[in-house]
Amino acid sequence: MKLLVAIKRTIDYNVKVRVNADNTDVELTNVKMAMNPFCEIAVEEAVRIKESGVADEIVVVSAGPKQTQETLRTALAMGADRGIHIETEMELQPLGVAKILKAVSESEEPGLVILGKQAIDDDSNQTGQMLAALLDWPQATFASNIVLSDQGAEVTREVDGGLETISINLPAVVTTDLRLNEPRYASLPNIMKAKKKPIEVKSPEDLDVDIKPRLIVLKVEEPAKRESGVMVESVAELISKLQNEAKVI
């Protein structure tokens, strides 16, 4: 089986994000970028599935500007076999990305597409579900466990209040949650090897998809700051304040 993993390049999760001076976007100049953490989990899961012998090839795909290839190289160093870069400078939104991934899925014909459940920049949590819809494939979102067989997959999902297990036919789309696995660090030899792995570059026009943004961002701003309160000296004072001043117990 072939696995397709879609990944996104985002601001590194350790960076403290700041809004730019004209409130149009966050500050991106000289900011460290990295693979979205949920996408790392997706790559790791694909590599583990291949290591278990169920899959024989991992194709990793990402859309974005030229630098996106660095993120694809990271995935190749983790164990993916080849990359596809859909190069564009245009602002990408989930529906446009889902259309790109649909076109790639139709030519690659994977048995399973794995994505992160959400990206830590726009926090949309949409692309995987949209891709499944456009392909008319089943979806298993927020996966914490995936068991693959020839007939299909049994996926355990992190839902509010517990764990839901569903079975889905293949081909299918799965999105990853935090507890699915702990991604590996790429070893130096593998980083060197990844430099020789092929990355095919295409444009959205090659795929004949409309990626025009549908949501217009009018403004970005920092949220209203919560005022800091008072320090208390003892547990007794804390309880008294909560009871008599805040009136919450």
Partner: peptide, 17 residues
């Protein structure tokens, strides 16, 4: 309005759909 970047940013978006 919707929170992005883990709630560090509030984005104001207009939908044309």
């Amino acid at each position: 309005q919707r929170p992005t970047y883990a709630g560090n940013v509030i984005s104001t978006v207009k939908s044309i759909d």
